[in-house]
Design a protein around this nucleic acid. Sequence first.
DNA 1: GTGTCATCATTGATACATCAATCAGATTTG
DNA 2: CAAATCTGATTGATGTATCAATGATGACAC
Lengths: 152, 152
Amino acid sequence: MVVGRRRLSVGELGVWRGLVDTTDELRRRLSVQLAEDSGLSPADYRVLLALSEAEGKRSRSSRLAEQMEWERSRLSHQLGRMEKRGLIRREDCATDSRGAEVVLSEEGADAFRRATAPHAKAIKKHFADALTPAQFDALEDILQSLERHLRR
Amino acid sequence: MVVGRRRLSVGELGVWRGLVDTTDELRRRLSVQLAEDSGLSPADYRVLLALSEAEGKRSRSSRLAEQMEWERSRLSHQLGRMEKRGLIRREDCATDSRGAEVVLSEEGADAFRRATAPHAKAIKKHFADALTPAQFDALEDILQSLERHLRR
DNA sequence: GTGTCATCATTGATACATCAATCAGATTTG
DNA sequence: CAAATCTGATTGATGTATCAATGATGACAC
């Protein structure tokens, strides 16, 4: 792992491009599948997942953003679209009048339930089934290295 | 690689999430760096790269789209934005009056030149430097498996 | 208690991706 | 050649991501 001496090699660039292209294509397929199965976008699903894991299926929007590691503005726009479609509701917060509570609606919970199993199946089909256990371990190790490097 | 029997495991899901999150973060950083160095977005860079590799720094827009594996509509919107900023020009095609030729402008070529080396350096810094040669080989192998699986 | 500052959340602007629709000009077919 | 069809490219609509700006409230110093 000779750092910073050599320049980026053609092979390294190729692997980078492959990584980007392949993950793009995987996401694209999962996104199409998710929309077919549940009418949800990946962003919708992500929000509903976080919300359905929350205490009482509700959460302060800043807390939600923090857990999801999303910008608040991003979440706010997303919630606006989801509220229009009835997937969530926004209520005033009792303890801080600046704050908003995001509440999972019945429709939101239904859509999420409808999405979950097929989504897991699609991840298995398109991603997990492609790799051997050894490749899996190797990938986990690689991701750990990348994450550590990013946080350094 | 027992296909289709077991359900997606928690570990597999975790690796999938890690893959998505880590590649997202990598892209985000490269995108910020690219913008700082050259004022270009990744989409701009991709178009300029394809165009600068083309015969005479010009190409029919459908040919460009094909090489880049982009939807024509996507390219058309992107070219519209880039034309406004003077990075490319569009000219009528001599041999097919429906067609358009996309031409790399001087400004476009400059921006691309300004972007290239720092971009490679950033890929090296954030990505390539994080991995050992063995991890690199493993990743290449994993990507090949994933691509083969997607094309099956 | 009032002024200053931080925080919660939203909004608007811009760029981008995707889809469906459009339109002009080429090509094919009878 | 005329009608039907296909193709190259653009456009508009919608959803999404990011950034800067805003407004309202809370917290703290004095």
